[in-house]
Simulated assay, not measured.
Amino acid sequence: MRARTLLPATLAAALLTLTACGSGDGSTSDSGPASSSAEASSPAQAPAASNGNGSGAEGAQVPKVLNFTATTVDGKPFDAKTLAGKPTVLWFWAPWCPTCKGQAAETAKVAADNAGTVNVVGVAGLDKNAAMRDFVSDTETGSFPHLSDEDGEVWKRFEVTQQSHYVILDKNGKTVYEGVLPGGKGLADKVAGLTG
């Protein structure tokens, strides 16, 4: 009898989590994500921009939140230490999410308009890598890196529980915004506030 009661409740909770595509309230957060001592499980190596001594791009000190590695959807190693020293937009998306697809054009525009001054990184999850690659191709967002986070390690690191979610960090790695921006509206203004 108890199993009959628990199973529907568990299934409902799982479906609610997976179908919450863009249902967040876009709230801001002044506190950074909980730091995780575990690095992403992929054996990625640091790109040349990281000098390996705890400094990221341009010798910036690497905040703990950017001390992880991953693999991009096209199979390249990615070291988040290279993001240090510049504001960073992390866009958490899922390939099957219509809200995410609706954010793609604005996110790509913000990435192009701020190339060299702001990092924009997609963090794909909740599906297989082939679907993630298709999403990047279909939405024409290949001008900035997208991480393949099939195991959800980066999502857990930033405590993201739903797709179509942005986490914006200042140049010191402090979370200055966390939430949903329907259609990406407001993303450019939030980034402009960090660059000047």
Rank of each mutant, 00 (worst) to 15 (best):
G142M: 11
L169S: 13
A46H: 09
S50C: 12
A40W: 07
V176Y: 04
G22N: 06
G54V: 03
P47N: 09
D151M: 04
D113F: 12
R133E: 04
L187S: 13
G125W: 07
L83Q: 00
S55Q: 11
D113A: 14
F68L: 05
D170T: 08
S29F: 00
D170G: 09
N51P: 04
A112F: 10
S42L: 13
L6I: 13
E159D: 04
P43G: 00
R2D: 10
G52L: 10
P47G: 05
T107H: 01
K185V: 15
V180D: 13
K128C: 05
T72I: 08
L66F: 11
W96Y: 10
A3F: 06
T19L: 11
T88G: 00
T5M: 01
T28W: 03
V110A: 05
N53P: 07
T10N: 02
D127C: 08
V89T: 08
S164L: 13
Y166P: 11
F144W: 12
T139I: 00
S143V: 12
S35F: 11
E178R: 09
V121M: 09
Q103R: 03
R133Q: 15
T28P: 02
D79G: 04
L16M: 02
A13S: 13
L83W: 08
A188Y: 12
T69L: 02
L181V: 15
G152V: 01
T99P: 08
N53Q: 09
A40I: 02
N67T: 10
G142I: 13
E150N: 08
V120I: 03
T99R: 01
V120C: 00
S143W: 01
V89E: 01
N114E: 05
E150Y: 01
V62Q: 12
T117K: 04
F78A: 00
E150A: 15
N51M: 05
R4T: 03
G152E: 02
C100E: 09
S35W: 05
K171H: 12
N114Q: 07
K128V: 06
E159I: 10
A46I: 03
N172G: 15
V62A: 13
P95I: 05
A94W: 13
T195Q: 05
E106T: 07
A124R: 03
A70H: 09
S29C: 00
A115R: 01
A44Y: 10
R2A: 13
V180P: 03
V136T: 01
Y166G: 14
V176D: 07
N172H: 12
V120E: 01
R133D: 01
A40P: 11
L126K: 03
A9P: 01
T161C: 07
S37W: 04
A20G: 07
G32A: 02
F78V: 02
